[in-house]
Design a protein around this nucleic acid. Sequence first.
DNA 1: GATGAATGAGCCTTCATTCAT
DNA 2: AATGAATGAAGGCTCATTCAT
Lengths: 203, 203, 203, 203
Amino acid sequence: MPKVGMPKIRRPQLIRATMDVINQVGFLNASVAKIGQQAGVSPSIINHYFGGKSGLVEATMRSILQDLAQGINLRLSTVPKNDTLGRIEAIVGENFSSHQQDEAVVKTWLAFWAQAMHDPALNRLQRVNEKRLLSYLRLELKRSMPHQQAQMVATSIAALIDGIWLRGALNPQGMDPDLARRVVKDYLSLYLQTASKNRAIKP
Amino acid sequence: MPKVGMPKIRRPQLIRATMDVINQVGFLNASVAKIGQQAGVSPSIINHYFGGKSGLVEATMRSILQDLAQGINLRLSTVPKNDTLGRIEAIVGENFSSHQQDEAVVKTWLAFWAQAMHDPALNRLQRVNEKRLLSYLRLELKRSMPHQQAQMVATSIAALIDGIWLRGALNPQGMDPDLARRVVKDYLSLYLQTASKNRAIKP
Amino acid sequence: MPKVGMPKIRRPQLIRATMDVINQVGFLNASVAKIGQQAGVSPSIINHYFGGKSGLVEATMRSILQDLAQGINLRLSTVPKNDTLGRIEAIVGENFSSHQQDEAVVKTWLAFWAQAMHDPALNRLQRVNEKRLLSYLRLELKRSMPHQQAQMVATSIAALIDGIWLRGALNPQGMDPDLARRVVKDYLSLYLQTASKNRAIKP
Amino acid sequence: MPKVGMPKIRRPQLIRATMDVINQVGFLNASVAKIGQQAGVSPSIINHYFGGKSGLVEATMRSILQDLAQGINLRLSTVPKNDTLGRIEAIVGENFSSHQQDEAVVKTWLAFWAQAMHDPALNRLQRVNEKRLLSYLRLELKRSMPHQQAQMVATSIAALIDGIWLRGALNPQGMDPDLARRVVKDYLSLYLQTASKNRAIKP
DNA sequence: GATGAATGAGCCTTCATTCAT
DNA sequence: AATGAATGAAGGCTCATTCAT
């Protein structure tokens, strides 16, 4: 008689082990043997639960993206709908939240980013996430500026987030979340000022 | 005496083959066997010229970074010393030049970026490049704004470059260099405007 | 649960295959591929059970030394404690027993001997065995002669054993165990005679 | 126009380099690349002068055996023809002379011993040397004892030499040449005493 | 559900040798 | 005479996966 409810334990356990191993030895050297060892179980079990290594890798990435999406929604739910600056700061803030700064998460994410270029499944996940971030930002910005401008500012902010994040990932001292928030806030408030002024001048 | 002048042929040939193979199958699957085959030579020759796979990988990365540095210097040499906006646009432009957009170069670079987290030699190269870009930008910006602000704007522009570049790397249609330049120019003129205004007010 | 009890089968099987292969092609050419083939299993299994080639090699040597030690103890248990000549002949006899004369064992041993000069793990095993033989011999001899002489005679007998054994190893017709025993017995009785005479003279 | 007289320089140079490399890394890891490096020349030259690695290896062994034979003859030429003990001591002494104790020579010899079991060319050389030692000893002994006894004593002495030599080769502190000479001298004088006494009794 | 036994493919590297110069 | 370019074979090892228990 099989133990019931094991999947609920094993799957997160193995996903976490995957991130830890990638953090320790890099994506290139993250073997199922090491992941199994890190999780304290037999490597064979990975096939049992994920059908193979790629299944585990995809599940791990999906888990990271889900955490981010949930975190953003949670933050947004506490900010008034019309507080554009506040809502964008919430999105940015979650992208640099403590969970996203977890070293294992950062390295895993970057590893996926590189891998996604050659793995269609990962690529799909990555692009969905990318577009979601852009659309969240655009949605907020459109309240304050024309569509086209909103599109460009959203692109800029998304690029700023990714760029700062990327540089932080490579920096041995980790990233500076305050810097990230400050840079984006500074840019955005400057922009909104100018935009409203411009609007005031040429309505 | 042996055949002479081969190193000058073989080394670039193998470096190019490395990028092509990484482009085709990803860093993870870029074996010396495939690289040798791509170059049309025996895999053993890689040890002959680079002492091993890691030597080749490092040489490849170094080659990419050198190309970028040379390209930037070339562009800068055609822009007047005091044309801040023009000089920064030159730097940005080279980062999105046709050579940097070469798909193989893009994927190789991103692969290195991920790998650099676990490979000290690559990490060192990466950070040198990072700092050079920052210092180039800061140097130009300091003519137009206080040191501290210059530092922050330089960081932002570098992040914008990397962020846009990164998102372009994942995009099957490649990146849009015009968009990149426009975003950065827009961002920069915003700051230069403010800076000159401030200077006018509080000299 | 996995197939059970395999280690008890596989380990001796692989150790025996190692000796056979060394016998056939020499230590230099004894590859894991050949050993696996000889054992009728996949070469990978060597890593599974011995962690690598060196683990197997060490285990093989340890096995040979253990067989010798056990054989000596078995023989000694049937000889009266005070029968010096008999006990030493037992030790010598086991060193030239049929199992020790097994061609594969002989060649493997000599191969290890040469290899032990550059492999610390094998060297340690070799020296333990060396010292054990010496101490066994000395223990018996001390009943019949002064300590210092016992030490020298023990050294001599050990050298005789190794020397005869070594020459036998090179000889295509194998070694002559009777000759070995006769030489040692002759040498030994020469010393035991002298010793007892001396004792009679200077009590 | 080729440089003349190079073979006279190159051959001993490469032979010595071979022994040094075997001493440093063992026969197993003594590659032509390392030998060439040790000699300060290109590895290719080994093929030029010795036709391949095995040619060099054989030449090296032959060189060692020649040195021993010459040394023995030199020593014997200074000892009166009828001084049996002295002549045997000369033979033994040369076997443990400073040149034979040269660590590189010792390790090379032992390596050859092991290798000779699987390499016909080396085996032949080894056995010639073996028989020569035996016949030298027998020749001397026959002056003092019957043929059959001489045969056995010669075998014993040869075994003692090889055994002590072998144990010395494995000992990190090197071998003790005095011990070797003392053991053989002690054995032999004891034997000659008893032999002459026996002869006196039963003429 | 979970394990370890077992495998075959693939990887990087070392090596002895040949060849053009 | 001597070199380094170049190769193909082989080596030990790691890996993801399958399977019997």
